[in-house]
């Protein structure tokens, strides 16, 4: 009989195994899948966080500087997706991005592409990344907005009056003041992105699957529960570490919900 406890599953989660002598070695090349998926998950989560920051920062700034009457109306554009069912948003991305979908139709009609060369924008990595960015963007905009709201415009004005051009005033005065918002939004988006399951499952195709999907795969298809649990534990440890950091930096009770 074997031992009661084993670290085999943890090794398998990183494409490693024990050889006959009990040394830890890499699995043969054809069996290596998981390392690539971990890297892909990290890469996609970082890319989604970066995209959310690039897209969300200007919008949060605009919303925080507009008069309340106008910004409240524009805020609907941020909050409505937040309240709309995830599956509705995924449906609409499939409808928009698929080969016979709305965007491809528009491109063909505009003459950008010919009818035979319709773009493949969903059921692959592009689909996962676009849908994830769309879903996570409000989680970036709201913390940024609440930080920017507290920054007095006088700081930038003072910098300008002391001779800084607008770029320098932004870089040296405004940007450092918004770092708490960037940190809060970035950590939140990353932590949510890294565990995504349903979005890659529906719009990711084969190339857009993330670690969450492999946990589900090992639970329900290959029935390798030990491996699923090991992968889940590693993911959980990562998430809890970031959660701890978030709690230290932002304080979980300060999370903004709409």
């Amino acid at each position: 009989m074997g031992k009661r406890f084993t670290s085999t599953h943890y090794l398998a989660a990183f494409d490693l195994k024990y050889d006959e002598n009990g040394n830890i070695v890499s699995k043969p090349k054809v069996q290596r899948v998981h390392k690539q998926i971990w890297l892909r998950t990290l890469w996609v989560s970082l890319a989604a966080t970066a995209l959310c920051l690039v897209l969300g920062y200007p919008v949060a700034y605009l919303l925080s500087t507009l008069p309340l009457r106008v910004s409240n109306i524009l805020m609907i554009c941020v909050l409505l997706p937040f309240w709309t069912s995830l599956l509705v948003r995924l449906t609409s991305w499939i409808v928009l991005l698929q080969k016979q979908g709305v965007l491809n139709d528009i491109f063909v009609w505009l003459g950008f592409i010919s009818d035979e060369h319709r773009l493949r924008m969903v059921y692959n990595m592009t689909g996962t990344l676009v849908a994830m960015t769309h879903i996570l963007l409000p989680f970036m905009i709201l913390p940024l907005y609440s930080v920017m709201k507290t920054i007095s415009p006088n700081y930038v004005k003072a910098a300008r009056s002391l001779g800084a051009d607008s770029w320098r005033a932004f870089r040296q005065i405004y940007l450092p003041l918004t770092i708490p918002g960037i940190g809060a939004g970035g950590l939140l988006v990353f932590i949510l992105a890294i565990g995504y399951y349903s979005t890659p499952a529906l719009v990711g195709g084969a190339s857009g699957q993330l670690i969450g999907n492999f946990i589900a795969l090992h639970m329900s298809k290959t029935l390798n529960w030990g491996l699923a649990a090991a992968m889940g534990t590693i993911l959980l440890a990562g998430v809890l570490a970031i959660y701890w950091l978030y709690n230290r930096l932002v304080g979980i009770e300060n999370m903004k919900l709409g």
Binding site: C77, T84, V95, V102
Partner: peptide
């Protein structure tokens, strides 16, 4: 454009 990106997918359905 960013606000359009947020809202258009919902409205189009």
């Amino acid at each position: 454009l960013v606000l359009f990106f947020l809202i258009a997918p919902i409205v189009v359905l």
